[in-house]
Design a binder for these strands. Structure first.
Lengths: 188, 188
DNA sequence: GGAAAAATTTACCCTATGGTAAAAAAGGAT
DNA sequence: ATCCTTTTTTACCATAGGGTAAATTTTTCC
């Protein structure tokens, strides 16, 4: 679930793969498809070249909890499984027809060993990602659900075009009913 | 606020600094001292060689909200300010007499350019940190305050020796009164 | 364009946690 | 030891958001 809007483009990947003399695998997923399931090992860092992805996990009651959204040009993986030997708990679902570029662990290591620019780009990506998570915790701890909703709407309007309200409410950490109540209140 | 228990030791730092032919600056802080304040630029990645650190920010009402604790052998920084040009919002407070090793941005760049092991170590550190933050969000969204308290107590008992309850309650995202109620309930 | 399915809203009552304020306990300094 | 300060607990009432269930709206698809 790493992601970056600004550091790595499809062209970067293309150039790097040529430099190192290999091709990245690609994969496509239909709207609604869960193309990587929890308990399955996550072998790749995914670059979303087209489409929109939701990452979710199941809580103890079996409820789907959205953990992340990823739009085009962003990168995602399950760090628990890709970087560590832990069991993956994340499900990767395409919210619309999606095209992915797959970077394996070996390829990532080659990239960061051999291409200084790639190394720096991935480092930036990690830092960016950690900053977003930090901010999200701060937001949960100090801002109301209503305010968090408004902020998400303003900062990531795309999510509201692609995702169901149930996806968004679990991302915000509230029930769908609460989100509905908040929306109603704000209209009037 | 990056931290790692397992990847970077004082000996690593020592060895690396010799290899590159420079010395890291050091700094000490007395118990209670806030040695880096919000709005001040954070110029260093700090290695805690001795002591215990709390990172906190002020919410809109001016309440101190604990964002992170850092024990000996861990590393911390304000990514907002160290990696980006954003205003630092974090305060670094020593909860006991503390010794720090300071790594500047230039030094960090040299380390990751010149020493493969250091590059990999820092990358691991970023990944570890992001995983912790992710887990913390999942925990907030699916577990009760009581359960989160018990988990913190079990996984990081040291925090309960070093920090005030007000520090811990704001880290958990609840009021001190609620934490007190939870503790009372659990004793009986 | 109508039936079936899915998504969203509404209603009702409930509970965990918040806010204010005060009391009690613990810790430090002389 | 005692006074003063800080920390922690307790009490009281208020409220945001949860849980269950049903009604309504929107989407899908034949």
């Amino acid at each position: 679930m790493f992601q970056s809007d600004q550091f790595i483009s499809k062209e970067h990947l293309q150039k790097w793969s040529e430099k190192l003399g290999f091709e990245f695998k690609t994969q496509s997923a239909k709207k609604g498809e869960v193309f990587l399931k929890h308990k399955q090992r996550c072998h790749y860092f995914y670059y979303v070249s087209k489409g929109f992805i939701r990452l979710y996990y199941l809580d103890l009651d079996g409820q789907e909890m959205t953990h992340w959204f990823s739009a085009e040009k962003m990168m995602i993986t399950s760090p628990f499984s890709f970087f560590k030997e832990e069991t993956n708990i994340l499900n990767f679902q395409a919210l619309e027809d999606t095209e992915l570029i797959l970077i394996s662990k070996d390829q990532l290591n080659l990239l960061s060993d051999q291409i200084d620019q790639a190394n720096k780009a991935f480092q930036s990506l990690f830092v960016e990602f950690a900053m977003r998570l930090s901010r999200r915790i701060m937001s949960i701890h100090t801002e109301s659900a209503e305010y968090r909703y408004l902020k998400l709407l303003e900062e990531h309007p795309l999510i509201f075009q692609k995702a169901k309200l149930a996806h968004i409410s679990s991302y915000l950490g509230i029930t769908q009913q609460s989100l509905s109540r908040i929306r109603k209140k704000l209209v009037h």
